[in-house]
């Protein structure tokens, strides 16, 4: 186990920078997850769409699954939910393959495409069909429709719903069976800011109740605000699998001072690597606490101090660009060892 924060407490005064290992990731034991993806592989002819992918999602956590288009994200989610047979490896949910679950919707709520509803059916009727398959009374469909704020639209055909409304309908359907696991592909897509915030609170609440969430999204800011853990896939392989905090800590700290040149000089004098960025701030390869202490010791006034640098967006491109190195827990542990 690597504890990224262990190093920081020792850095109570201006200690030299440069220890990259501590900026790596925390690890979690590779067993006991609610969702276990083990050596998953999918080959289409000569093309390896998903290449030996392993990760797991724990109870009470939200895992963000990121990757560029065509990286194997959707294929992995489809293999997880029994829609696509894997070429190799397997996925278990609570110890069983999805297709072996007695009534999958009662354990796993799935929404892979909000548009995957019959346009000619009403919203309420769509949910009543799900309720029937889940051995639940039709009343449950009415409750869920009210719960996602679509009570007034229940009698309208889904073809007339906006994308945001279809997302809500999909969420209602996914949560219908009171599942322990949620698997969502782009759940905030097409939602207005209010809807996005609603979705974030909903998922947080779900995880706080012990639920397991695996979600993919291209809205990186939203992912950063929502998830605990990140799994990043690039060209079919896992390129990062760690706690969000730890991955962002690896991005260093963005800092801006009243007297920027003096601040940079102080940081460099302490041995910190300082990089300029697009904005006014500079990026420092050190935790925020250490940067703050160096500034304090140098008598510099800080206007901005932000751990995680420029956030998930930079990290995402760093991880998924060609030639990116692996940031998975295993390799991080190897670096730290």
């Amino acid at each position: 186990m690597v504890d990224v924060y262990a190093g920081q407490h020792r850095l109570s005064s201006g200690v030299a920078c440069g220890d990259r290992a501590m900026l790596s990731s925390t690890t979690r034991p590779h067993h006991g997850g609610m969702i276990n993806v083990e050596h998953l592989t999918k080959r289409y002819g000569a093309q390896l769409a998903v290449d030996d992918v392993s990760f797991h999602c724990e109870r009470g956590s939200i895992t963000g699954f990121l990757g560029p288009n065509g990286a194997g994200k959707s294929t992995t989610l489809r293999m997880t939910t029994g829609l696509t047979p894997p070429t190799g490896g397997r996925v278990t949910i609570d110890g069983r393959r999805f297709v072996d679950l007695p009534n999958p919707g009662r354990l796993v709520g799935v929404m892979l495409d909000a548009a995957a509803q019959h346009a000619g059916r009403t919203g309420l009727e769509t949910l009543k069909l799900s309720a029937q398959l889940l051995d639940l009374p039709a009343r449950r469909a009415v409750e869920m429709l009210e719960a996602v704020g679509l009570a007034d639209a229940g009698g309208r055909r889904v073809g007339n719903y906006s994308l945001g409304m279809r997302q809500r309908l999909g969420i209602a359907s996914a949560l219908m069976g009171d599942p322990a696991v949620l698997i969502l592909d782009e759940p905030a897509n097409g939602m207005d800011p209010e809807g996005i915030r609603w979705m974030r609170l909903l998922l947080r609440d779900f995880a706080n109740r012990g639920g397991t969430v695996l979600l993919s999204s291209h809205l990186l800011g939203e992912v950063q605000a929502t998830v605990d853990r990140l799994v990043v896939i690039g060209r079919g392989r896992i390129v990062a699998d760690a706690q969000l905090d730890a991955l962002l800590a690896g991005q260093g700290t963005a800092v801006r001072g009243l007297d920027q040149p003096a601040l940079v000089a102080a940081l460099q004098a302490a041995g910190c690597a300082v990089r300029t960025t697009d904005g006014d701030a500079v990026r420092v390869d050190a935790p925020a606490e250490q940067v703050g202490r160096i500034a304090l010791a140098a008598g510099q006034v800080l206007l901005e101090l932000r751990e995680g640098g420029d956030g998930l967006e930079d990290l995402f491109f760093e991880l998924t660009s060609s030639g990116a190195t692996s940031h998975s827990s295993d390799s991080a542990a190897a670096v730290a060892a």
Partner: peptide
């Protein structure tokens, strides 16, 4: 789209 009354997340769960 009609105006959507957004319920609390807790209502759903």
């Amino acid at each position: 789209s009609a105006a959507i009354i957004v319920p609390e997340a807790a209502d759903v769960l």
